Computed example of a mutant assay.
Amino acid sequence: MREPTRTLAAMVAEHVELALFEQSLGNIEGLNRPFGDRVADAAEKTGGSVLFDVRVDGDSCVQRMAAIGYGVTGTAIIVMGKNGQLGCASVSGDTALLVAALAAWNASPLSEQARVDHSATASILLARLRSSGHFARF
C-alpha cells in the first residue's frame, strides 16, 4: 500500500517542529530560550521568515503564537502553551487572511501596534486552527 502524499505545507511544519525539537535538546541546564528567539532560530534553520509573534490573551492553555512564512510553500504556526510546551501546524487557506492581518500588524510601527488591538484576530486564528484539529492538546 502506498503512503499518502503529504502536502508541502505539512512538510514545512514538520521541518519547523524538528528545528524546535533540536533546540529543546540543546537547552542548557533545563533553561528554555525565549519564545521569540526560538521561533527566529527555527525560521532561519528552515529557510523561512517570522511573520508575527504575539501574546494570546484570555486563552486558558496558550500564551504565545507565531507564524513562519515560506512564500508560496506555506506558513507554519507555532504555539506555546502555558506550561512552555510548543506545538506546530501548517496553515490552510481559510486562515491565510488572519495570518496576513497579524503579519501586517506586526510589521506596523510600534505607535500603530499600540493603537490597534490584535488579540481578537489571534484568538480567532487559534480557534480556527483548533476546529481544524490542530492544538487540541493545548
Rank of each mutant, 00 (worst) to 15 (best):
M1S: 12
E3K: 13
E3T: 14
P4W: 10
T5R: 10
T5C: 03
R6W: 00
T7A: 07
T7R: 05
A9V: 01
A9P: 01
A10H: 05
A10N: 02
A10G: 03
V12E: 00
E14D: 10
H15A: 10
H15M: 06
V16Y: 06
E17Y: 04
A19F: 03
A19H: 04
L20R: 10
F21I: 04
F21P: 00
F21T: 09
E22P: 00
E22S: 09
E22H: 08
S24I: 03
S24L: 11
S24E: 14
S24A: 10
L25M: 11
L25H: 11
L25E: 12
N27W: 03
I28T: 13
G30W: 06
G30S: 08
L31W: 05
L31P: 01
L31N: 09
P34Q: 15
P34I: 12
P34M: 14
F35L: 12
F35H: 10
G36C: 12
G36Q: 14
D37G: 08
D37N: 06
R38N: 07
R38W: 12
V39W: 05
V39N: 05
A42I: 02
A43K: 00
E44W: 02
K45S: 07
G48E: 01
S49D: 13
V50R: 08
L51A: 04
V54F: 06
R55K: 10
R55Q: 08
V56D: 03
V56L: 12
D57S: 11
G58I: 12
D59E: 11
D59C: 14
C61M: 14
C61R: 14
Q63Y: 06
Q63A: 08
Q63P: 01
A66P: 05
A66T: 05
A67C: 13
A67W: 08
Y70V: 01
G71Y: 01
T73G: 05
G74H: 02
T75W: 05
T75G: 02
T75M: 04
A76N: 06
A76K: 08
A76Q: 06
I77K: 00
I77V: 15
I78Q: 03
M80Y: 00
G81A: 10
K82A: 07
K82P: 01
N83W: 00
N83R: 05
N83V: 08
L86I: 07
L86C: 09
G87H: 02
C88Q: 14
C88F: 06
A89N: 08
A89R: 11
V91I: 15
V91N: 03
D94E: 15
D94V: 13
T95N: 14
A96H: 12
A96C: 10
A96R: 12
L98R: 07
V99T: 15
V99E: 15
A101K: 10
A104C: 07
A104E: 14
S108R: 02
S108T: 04
P109N: 03
Q113T: 03
A114S: 10
A114N: 04
R115E: 09
R115S: 08
D117V: 07
D117A: 12
S119M: 06
S119R: 07
T121R: 04
S123M: 11
S123C: 13
I124Y: 11
I124W: 12
I124A: 13
A127C: 14
S131G: 09
S131H: 13
S132Q: 15
S132G: 13
H134D: 14
H134W: 14
F135K: 10
A136C: 07
R137A: 15
